[in-house]
Design a protein around this nucleic acid. Structure first.
Lengths: 134, 134
DNA sequence: GAGTATATTGACGTTTACGTAAACGTCAAT
DNA sequence: ATTGACGTTTACGTAAACGTCAATATACTC
C-alpha cells in the first residue's frame, strides 16, 4: 500500500468530501503533515479517518470520537492520571456500545415481525387478486 | 399501567424535556389526542416514543426514525405498492443495523486492546514506583 | 504562457435537533 | 384573590456538521 495519501485520495476512498476532511482537522481529529501548503496523510492518519467514520456510523458526535481516537495513543504512554482517565473512558464507551447492541437486537427483532406481517398481507392480496381474476 | 399520560409524565419517565416531545410532534413522529388544549398520550404513543428514543441511541436522524415508526403500522394494511415499499425500507434498515453490529464488534475489540495496554502500562508504573520506594 | 487540475484559506449558508424565553390559559390550594 | 404547578403557542437562538462559493496558490503540460 502507499506510504502517504493526498486529501482527495482519501476523500475518494471513503466517499467523503475534502471539505469534510479539513473540517475534521479543524476539530482536532486529524493532523496531517504539510508539504508546503499541501496536506500529506500518513497511513496512521488514514487509519484514524477510518476509525472516525466507524464512529460516525454508530452515531457518535465528533467530540466523543476524538476522545476515543486519542485513547488509541494514550494507551501506550503518559502519566498515571492520564492512564486511569483513559481506562474510565474505555469503560464508558464499552457501556454505550453494549446498549447499542441491545438496541440493535431489539430493532432487528421488530423488523422481522414487521416484514413477516407485510409478506403475509401481500400474500393475501395476491390470493384475492387470483380469485377476482378467475 | 396507566391508560394515558401527560407530556410531563413522559418527559420524566424518559428523561427528556417536554420541548423535545412537542418537537417530535412537530416533525410528525407523534400525534397525541387533545383534551381541549392539552395533549393526551395513549400507551401506543408512549411506545412510539420509546422506539423513537431507541432510534436516537442508534444515531438515526428523526426522518429515518419516522419512516421506521410508520412501518409498524404500514405492516397491517395499505396498498400493495405501500407494502412493497415498506418491505424495501425494512431491508434497508436491516442492512444499516447489520453494519452497525459489525462496527460495534470491531470497536469492542479495539477497546479491549486499548484497555489491556493501559493496564499493563499502569502495572509497570506501579512496579517502578515500588522500586523507587524501596 | 495559457490552460487545466489540484490544492489552499476564508466566509457565509444550511440542516438537524432541540434550548430558551415571552406571554398567556387553567385549575387546585391557600 | 393570588400563588404555584402545569399546560399552551410563537419566536428567536444555538451547536454540530458539514456544503458552497470565491479568491488565491502551485504544478504540469501543451
Amino acid at each position: 500500500m502507499q506510504e502517504t495519501f493526498t486529501i482527495s485520495e482519501l476523500g475518494k476512498e471513503f466517499g467523503i468530501t475534502t471539505r469534510a476532511i479539513r473540517f475534521y482537522e479543524d476539530k482536532k481529529l486529524l493532523s496531517p503533515v504539510r508539504d508546503g501548503q499541501k496536506r500529506i496523510y500518513t497511513r496512521s492518519d488514514r487509519t484514524r479517518l477510518k476509525l472516525l467514520l466507524r464512529g460516525k456510523r454508530l452515531g457518535w458526535p465528533l467530540d466523543e470520537i476524538r476522545d476515543v481516537l486519542n485513547m488509541y495513543e494514550a494507551g501506550d504512554e503518559g502519566e498515571l492520571q492520564q492512564l486511569l482517565y483513559t481506562c474510565r473512558k474505555v469503560e464508558e464507551s464499552r457501556q454505550q456500545l453494549e446498549q447499542q447492541k441491545l438496541d440493535i437486537e431489539a430493532s432487528l427483532a421488530d423488523l422481522a415481525t414487521i416484514e413477516s406481517r407485510c409478506r403475509a398481507r401481500i400474500e393475501s392480496l395476491a390470493i384475492d387478486g387470483d380469485e377476482n381474476a378467475a
